[in-house]
Simulated scan of single mutants.
Amino acid sequence: MKSALLCIDLQHLCAVRGEGIFAAGDNCRFSNEEQEYFFDRLDNETLPNVQKLQAIFRDKGIEVLHIRTRTKTRDGRERTFWQKRAELLATPGSRESEFIDSVIPRGDELIINKTGSGPFGNTNIHALLVQLDVQQIYCCGVHTNTSIESTIRAAADYGYCPVLVSDATATVSQAQQDNCVERLDGQCCEVIQTAKLVEDFKHHLRSVG
């Protein structure tokens, strides 16, 4: 079964302190406690694990896809109702649309720009995965209970075999993280930890080397 790694919303809009949805001011919908939890997990667990995943997938020659929230238009008029309501806006060339440096795309890795919570239904990701002959997708990034959950549920409905790399994801509380993983596990995806996945890949490389 051919695989791909999907790195989701690892950009300034969604995962950088003081920017995008975490911008300071009255409009920030996340409490200080939620932000501290999120960025502690992101910096010390999620991003280091995403780096490990990207490294092993690249070494093995498996596709690494980067999915981000970014509009086609300058005013974002093609966004979903819910993105407009949440004031999620990352336009072409904006800082909000830029990837986090530590997990930035390399070479000619594919970038998919979405205007909804997940990419299915508002991008060509399904056609692209069919062209790449991919049946199994490993999902990492942010936020576990929104973009990642939407991606996994839609992928399962489209006939893919999604895998959630749970410790390579993050959201704003441990309760939301745990509840989301519990909802998804065994219902529309498998759940795995980064170390186990990396070890499995290394073992496979040794066995076929």
Rank of each mutant, 00 (worst) to 15 (best):
P92N: 03
Q135A: 04
D200M: 13
V208E: 08
L89N: 04
Y37M: 02
T194N: 06
F39T: 07
T46D: 06
H203R: 15
Y160W: 10
I100Q: 02
C188M: 14
V181Q: 07
Q176L: 14
D108A: 10
R106P: 00
G186P: 09
C140L: 06
A154S: 15
G118W: 00
D167N: 12
I137S: 03
V208S: 12
L42C: 07
E36P: 05
E36K: 14
I104V: 07
I8T: 07
V103Y: 01
E190H: 09
S102T: 11
I21S: 00
F30G: 04
R206S: 15
A154R: 09
D26V: 09
R29F: 10
C139W: 01
L184I: 09
G116I: 00
N32T: 09
C7G: 03
Y158F: 15
G18I: 07
Y138S: 02
K196N: 12
K196W: 01
E45V: 15
K196G: 08
E182I: 03
V165C: 08
F201V: 13
T115F: 01
L6V: 15
I148N: 01
T46I: 03
A90E: 04
R153H: 07
G20F: 09
F201K: 14
F81V: 15
D43S: 14
L184A: 11
Q35D: 02
A55T: 15
I8L: 11
F30V: 06
S3H: 14
Q174L: 11
S207W: 06
R68A: 04
S3G: 05
N124I: 09
